[in-house]
C-alpha cells in the first residue's frame, strides 16, 4: 500500500464534513521550506506556481535515495489564509515523500475525488484544485528536467 493509499483511507474513514477537519490537520502539518528557499520569495519568482487560485511557491530539490537515487523533495509555501490549498498540498508532500519526480508527475488527477473531498468542497472549489494539481505535476516534471541539465539549478 502506497503512502497515498494510506492517506486516502484515513480521509475515507471519516464521513462528510469531518474530512475537512482531516484536511485542516494536514494544512497545519505542511512542512516549512528551509529559510534559504523562503528567502528567494519576492526576489526570484521562478518557484511561483502561476494559475493557482492562491499564491503558491513550489521547490523541487534533489532528495536522498529512492529508486536509482533519483528521489526528489517537494517544498511548498502557501499563505495561512488559504488552508484548503495548504491542506491539499500537504497531502501531496506527505504522500510523495521520497518519491521520484516521475512518480509525482504521475499523481492521479482525481486526487480530490479519491480523498472523498469533492462532496464537501463542492464543484466550484474542486475544479480550482484540479487545475492546481495539474500545475504541480507539470512544474515537478519541468523542475526535474532542469535539475538533470544543471544539478545546482534546483537548489
Amino acid at each position: 500500500m502506497s503512502k497515498l493509499d494510506d492517506i486516502i483511507s484515513t480521509f475515507r474513514s471519516f464521513e462528510g464534513e469531518m474530512r475537512l477537519q482531516v484536511l485542516l490537520d494536514y494544512a497545519n502539518g505542511l512542512p516549512k521550506p528551509p529559510p534559504e528557499l523562503m528567502a528567494t520569495i519576492g526576489k526570484d519568482d521562478a518557484a511561483r506556481v502561476h494559475e493557482c487560485m492562491t499564491p503558491v511557491w513550489l521547490w523541487v530539490v534533489p532528495g536522498e535515495g529512492g529508486e536509482g537515487g533519483k528521489s526528489v523533495k517537494l517544498f511548498v509555501h502557501v499563505g495561512e489564509e488559504a488552508p484548503t490549498v495548504r491542506g491539499v498540498l500537504s497531502v501531496i508532500v506527505h504522500a510523495y515523500e521520497g518519491a521520484t519526480a516521475d512518480e509525482i508527475a504521475a499523481m492521479p488527477e482525481d486526487l480530490i475525488e479519491r480523498l472523498g473531498l469533492s462532496p464537501v468542497l463542492r464543484m466550484n472549489r474542486v475544479i480550482g484544485l484540479h487545475a492546481m494539481i495539474k500545475r504541480i505535476k507539470r512544474e515537478t516534471a519541468a523542475h526535474a528536467a532542469n535539475a538533470t541539465e544543471a544539478p545546482e539549478a534546483g537548489r
Binding site: 475537512l20 485542516l24 494544512a27 495561512e80 489564509e81 488559504a82 488552508p83 484548503t84 491542506g87 468542497l121
Partner: peptide
C-alpha cells in the same frame, strides 16, 4: 472564500 479559514 476558503471553507477552512474560519477553522484556523
Amino acid at each position: 472564500e476558503d471553507v477552512l479559514l474560519y477553522d484556523t
